[in-house]
Design a protein around this nucleic acid. Structure first.
Length: 271
DNA sequence: AACTTCCGCAACCGCGCGTAG
DNA sequence: GCTACGCGCGGTTGCGGAAGT
């Protein structure tokens, strides 16, 4: 069982050190050294506990101690060391000449901590803004790709429909072929398989449009795609929050601004 | 001028570790 | 191996001056 290690509170002084006490402690340690902090106050004629004497000497009276006036280099050193070592003040103090752990700890809590927190917040803002920008770019790229694909598909679909309607003998629609110049027309009799494939392709386009509809429809091309699909088969096109099927046009710009506001609000609410 | 609040800093406190007996 | 003790460290407190009302 450990005995209480703290000073007998009835016999020792506490609180701020007087110049007289400082003088006595300084003189004693300078001439005799600090061989035993617990015994020291008795021999030095001080009504303080050993622990208090040690603290006073180490943090204030010891020679070569620098106080205040931290340089920018010291600030950076402390911040860097704190990042890697955490609250190990004595280890940090060992890297800075003439600074005590207590002084650095106080300086950290009164100045640097806030500084670092502010910088972290600024950095986090910048990171999220960049992230949002990248995400937006990805969505726009994806929109363009889908839009382009849908446009091509619609052109092929319309062409194939014309072929099916106007020709008694047609080639099976092949969407692997990129140019209509490659299609051989007038070879085979159309079968129910041809129509089945055609409907499957329509379904695929409608699916593409559904994917497109999930994204913000911000470009006129996307609206046109929606209109084209709607005119082709209104029953197969899902309702879009971005396209007014009554007016057959995109919702007005106020709607878009409102959505933008909501997006901004969502971003803000992350904070 | 008086009072309150804020802030920096010195000092205290409790805990853990190392070591001597 | 156990205990008592000293020391060092880090968290917390409280004093006193500055700033604000």
């Amino acid at each position: 069982m450990r005995t209480p290690r703290f000073c007998d509170k009835t016999k020792v002084r506490k609180g701020t050190w007087t110049p007289e006490e400082d003088k006595r402690l300084s003189a004693f340690v300078t001439s005799n050294g600090c061989w035993n902090w617990r015994q020291l106050p008795k021999h030095a004629g001080l009504l303080r506990c050993g622990k208090s004497c040690r603290l006073r000497w180490m943090n204030y009276l010891r020679p070569n101690i620098r106080r205040g006036n931290y340089t920018k280099e010291e600030d950076e050193t402390i911040i860097t060391l704190h990042k890697s070592m955490g609250n190990r003040w004595s280890a940090i103090a060992a890297q800075l000449r003439g600074r005590t752990d207590n002084d650095i700890k106080n300086y950290w809590h009164s100045h640097l901590k806030k500084l670092v927190e502010d910088e972290t917040i600024t950095l986090a803002h910048a990171t999220i803004q960049n992230s949002n920008h990248d995400e937006l770019s990805n969505i726009e790229t994806k929109q363009e790709e889908i839009s382009h694909q849908v446009n091509n598909d619609l052109v092929k679909l319309e062409t194939d429909q014309i072929i099916v309607e106007n020709s008694s003998v047609i080639q099976l629609p092949s969407y692997e072929v990129s140019s209509m110049a490659d299609a051989n027309v007038g070879v085979e009799v159309p079968t129910s398989v041809d129509h089945l494939l055609l409907h499957q392709e329509e379904d695929r386009i409608v699916h593409d449009l559904q994917v497109l509809e999930m994204e913000p429809m911000s470009t006129p091309e996307n609206s046109n795609n929606y209109l084209a699909a709607y005119l082709l088969d209104p029953s197969n096109v899902p309702q879009s929050p971005y396209f007014d099927v009554e007016l057959l046009c995109p919702y007005n710009s106020n709607r878009q601004e409102q959505d933008d506001d909501e997006l901004d609000f969502k971003n803000l609410s992350l904070w």
